[in-house]
Nucleic acid binder design. Structure first.
Lengths: 349, 349
DNA sequence: AAATTCCCTGCATACGTTTGCAAGGGAGTC
DNA sequence: GACTCCCTTGCAAACGTATGCAGGGAATTT
């Protein structure tokens, strides 16, 4: 049987209340505290979070729901969350829903009941589903934004612009975009930003836009939707080669790597004949052949920030976030230029 | 406030005990059960695991400790565990220890107290540390074996032999082995098996060995230890090229991919001039360039099996494993031949 | 020196759930 | 028709911890 607070109390010759107070920082005389601490140490006592949570109403446990742990993107987020949780001595339940939205909602309900709050990576559920299933006070969305809900997301628009502007500066005029799943929130963000490049120049002059880059003279060719996987990229390779595009912005790094693979198999040199830019900057991106130019998105940091946001709300530490800016945090993105992007081929070549 | 069993009882017009029994499968009349179920459904009731665990002594929660979630090998294990846990409606705490052994032991103590049992991926702690920190009845080691403790591991010896025999059959006579960290249990297993190839032929005749393959005529060149990472592989590339080896067995796939990367950078064609074999068969292995021949090790399956072993012991379902064969499970491995291994170059070439 | 204050400690209760025990009622059997 | 048996249900206790409340003792004040 595990040692309980009673065992410690007996060993120290005091009551259970004193033990509890000694360990949680209540008002106890220094001498008693020392005795209790010694006894607890000697017996290897660890408080039972379960029982503690019952009375305090807080468990010190948090939930994280991801569609696929095998996907490095989510693995990175999980690592960030875990690291932060360890620092505050909290536990984190991780549920892999295998890309199944209904499992996601189910996990949300269960975890919501058994934790102090849950971090949710849900690219595919609808806004309405999320608003209905989640407690807006104890749920924070990661890499997704829904009005009125707590969220940590990345500045996808800025990242997308950087990628296109990079390719444009290299002389590319026809750029393919490999779209991901239609339901994906992040995918919709990318498309919305790319649509700017189709607009007339005067649209860029609206005063609220602080985006001064020139968006003319480049044409975006949309392909897909493709599966957001290596296989999806392989498939897209032939599509892209059949077009007039000289550069490709992939939905994510996995797709970009599949694309690279297919291009290599067809003997197309990268970046000499085709530039490839990925999205996310997962660790594999640096290992690809050639190393992948990609839009870096904070992952571990987003996970840590998400937990932090939760802690401030339920943890009592500091005042809870109130303004929209505090409730819906946007983290910066940045283009990482590696070897897969280069000058556009000359028309004569 | 969350809905409790009391709320459901009021709504259904019965006592809390009846609600409890209706939901956990006690003896209740079909009519009342239906009423209770309906009320529970309507109120969105989820039992509080915390409180349940307090009385039953079982929480339905399990712990998983891994050194690095970012490493696809452990991500795969975590996914397997999560999937199995979801099937039995259990929760799983995942702790990423960031390769820190002391954090591992600390997590083991905390999780051991707050869960029904913990799954431990600890390649680097010593046997003694593990035996002291872990409860042998509720801890199962994953991909590691310690006498007397529950474990799920892979048949590393068989996998290693398959890899070497494969290369030997392709005509390779001098094979480099890239050793991983010295403390690694799996690494020690690989080395022990490779040592067989250095022994005199008569050693293979000992009756208890069911291994009939010819181990003569091949020389193992050991390099390392190298870090078990992509970077470690890059580093090893130059070492291998400076030797007379015509084939390489890497410590794991990450190392193999780094090696591939370096070989490509130095213009060495694979497998024409150098064959490369990895270990683990992580999902990236199929995406490398060229696709990697590698020893497939069960990962998700190992995770699921580990949880299964735990469930049989503490879950009450079935009789707990008693024989050594049941307590220390070994899963099969198998070589997956892809494009990175081929015929040995002719000496004239 | 007596009274007041404050610090420390123990007792008892509460948290949400499960479960042993006992009571009630309906049906089946003699 | 009465008795027995079993099924169903409610009451109450228990799990391990935290905390309000009150009591006791020492220290400080008048």
């Amino acid at each position: 049987m595990r040692t309980t607070v009673h065992d410690v109390a007996d060993a120290a010759g005091v009551s259970v209340s004193t033990v509890s107070r000694a360990l949680t920082g209540g008002s106890v005389s220094p001498a008693t505290r020392a005795t209790v601490m010694a006894a607890a140490e000697r017996l290897g006592y660890r408080p039972n979070r379960t029982a503690r949570g019952l009375i305090t109403g807080r468990t010190g446990n948090y939930g994280l729901i991801v569609p696929d742990l095998q996907n490095p993107f989510f693995a990175d987020i999980a690592k960030g969350v875990s690291a932060r949780a360890r620092a505050v001595d909290g536990g984190v339940f991780i549920t892999d829903t295998d890309e199944d939205v209904s499992a996601e909602l189910e996990a949300l309900a269960t975890l919501g009941r058994n934790t102090d709050g849950v971090l949710l990576c849900s690219p595919r559920a609808t806004d309405a589903e999320l608003k209905e299933a989640a407690d807006p006070e104890t749920t924070v969305l990661v890499h997704r934004q829904v009005p009125g809900m707590l969220s940590i997301s990345a500045d996808i628009a800025a990242g997308t612009r950087q990628a296109i502007d990079h390719l444009r500066a290299l002389g590319h005029r026809r750029i393919a975009f490999l779209a991901g799943p239609d339901e994906s929130w992040a995918g919709a963000q990318r498309l919305a930003t790319l649509a700017e490049y189709d607009k007339k120049p005067e649209y860029d002059e609206k005063p609220e836009s602080n985006d001064k880059t020139d968006k003319t003279g480049v044409e975006i060719l949309r392909f897909g939707s493709v599966a957001p996987t290596f296989e999806g990229g392989v498939l897209a390779g032939d599509l892209v080669l059949a077009s007039t595009a000289t550069a490709v912005l992939a939905y994510n790094d996995l797709v970009a790597m599949g694309l690279l693979h297919r291009l290599a198999a067809r003997g197309v040199p990268v970046p000499e004949r085709m530039s490839v830019v990925g999205y996310d900057d997962i660790s594999l991106a640096a290992m690809s052949h050639p190393p992948l130019t990609t839009v870096a998105v904070p992952k571990g940091r987003a996970g840590a920030a998400a937990l932090e946001l939760l802690l401030r709300r339920v943890g009592g530490a500091g005042k809870p976030a109130t303004t929209v800016r505090e409730r819906e945090v946007t983290l910066p993105t940045g283009l990482v230029v590696r070897a897969s992007s280069g000058l556009a081929p000359t028309t004569s070549g």
